[in-house]
Design a protein around this nucleic acid. Structure first.
Lengths: 230, 230
DNA sequence: GACAAACAGATTGTCGACAATCTAACAAGA
DNA sequence: TCTTGTTAGATTGTCGACAATCTGTTTGTC
């Protein structure tokens, strides 16, 4: 018999598709923070009954990108500067741990996948597709989590990623200009291929700092806006 | 006007109550790992329709203590040795971070709350109420997360706690004898009140190690049983 | 007897309708 | 004018029934 690994077929429930649709709408900023999700309207637009829609919403609530108030409604989470900073600082800690877990498990397949994802980011960058650029950059970043062979860590990262992607999308939307087209991942990839784990961890911190620097500026602008409004 | 802070009133939806009931049933081991949750049967027992029950289940799926396979059913997660070890190692990392965040924010209220929770643990220990002992010990442990002022970190911890509580309950159920009645939290509390953060972090690791030592033994027994069955 | 197709039962996924609750506008009274 | 009670509309929460899917059994064919 030929050795062939079949991947599980797609979950073909309406619920799963609704989750994907809503998530995409939120993470790309089509649904704004704080906005209320009207069940009847959305279910009519999607040509679906409210039952699977509501179940999908429950999933996203637990995922941390929606919030629900009984008898009042379900809303896209509000993004405060503190939220971004919190996610940012936790991400640093998790990154260091993920590198530590992944380090002894690196092999040729890891390096190949690393290159593949890196190439995908560069492609999106060249195409000036900012949404996809965010998505692929996070996927590149996520490889160390997938490789760490720690399911709890991976879940944690994925939940964090949802928010990060939303934050980046918001930031990207806030400033009209396109993202700089240079490649900021070169060193990161090189270090992950190298032999100095400490260096990789250290750079991961700085690398994140670079990625987050603008995000933090955006966070601060949120802070200012809030204080002016108050 | 008298200065009085009202806390938000309880969510009085059936869904919320069902979540609480199911969670408790799982975390105390009344529902065994791998067991299937029959929607019709449970909804009839609870005198509730399937809609809120299903929504509650979706929440617990995202919470990581249930798993759902479309058209097949929703099951209590299976506990493998690896799961326990994964949760254990991540917990160590998060603990260190939580202490770092909490450290500069400690004040009298923190110390008071620390003592209060410690007393609650000792009370449950004296009463030989193992379920409550697990619950209160995790609550004591969770204070540094609540105090860290990082909402994402707190969420992460709470999700992890669900599993830890389940693991401990399983372990406690596996061995018939009661938990030792001695107090293992004395040093932990003292160090959190002290001035040496590094020492507190170091002890947190060892303290966890102590708490987890038996859990890991249970994990290894799971491993053995699995290899025998295979 | 081995295998495949068809069937029956049970269970999950989805639907449309009804009940409970909230919000906002409006009226009544101090 | 401010506060309180009422009401109407909209929205969420819940229900019971139907459709889609899975699983195990039976039946028929070679």
């Amino acid at each position: 018999m030929a050795k062939l690994d079949f991947s599980p077929i797609a979950d073909t429930t309406r619920r799963a598709e609704i989750v994907a649709l809503l998530r995409r709408a939120i993470l790309t900023g089509q649904l704004e923070p704080g906005q209320k999700l009207n069940e009847l309207r959305i279910s009519e637009q999607m040509r679906v009954s409210r039952a699977p829609l509501r179940e999908a919403m429950r999933e996203l609530v637990q995922d941390g990108i929606l919030t629900s108030i009984p008898y009042a409604g379900t809303f896209v989470i509000d993004v405060t500067a503190k939220d971004i900073i919190d996610a940012y600082s936790l991400n640093k800690v998790l990154d260091e741990f993920a590198i530590e877990c992944t380090w002894p498990l690196r092999d040729q397949r890891f390096f190949d996948e690393l290159d593949r994802r890196h190439a995908t980011v560069k492609q999106a960058t060249r195409a000036l597709d900012t949404t996809r650029q965010i998505e692929t950059a996070l996927q590149l970043h996520g490889l160390i989590y997938e490789w760490a062979d720690n399911s709890v860590l991976l879940e944690t990262w994925q939940r964090l990623t949802s928010r990060l992607q939303m934050y980046f999308a918001l930031h990207q939307q806030a400033r009209a200009e396109p993202v700089p087209a240079e490649d900021v991942h070169e060193t990161y990839v090189a270090l992950l291929k190298g032999n100095d784990m400490r260096a990789a961890q250290r750079h991961a911190r700085e690398h994140i700092d670079l990625d987050f620097e603008e995000l933090l500026a955006y966070a601060r602008s949120l802070e200012k806006r809030a204080s002016k409004g108050a």
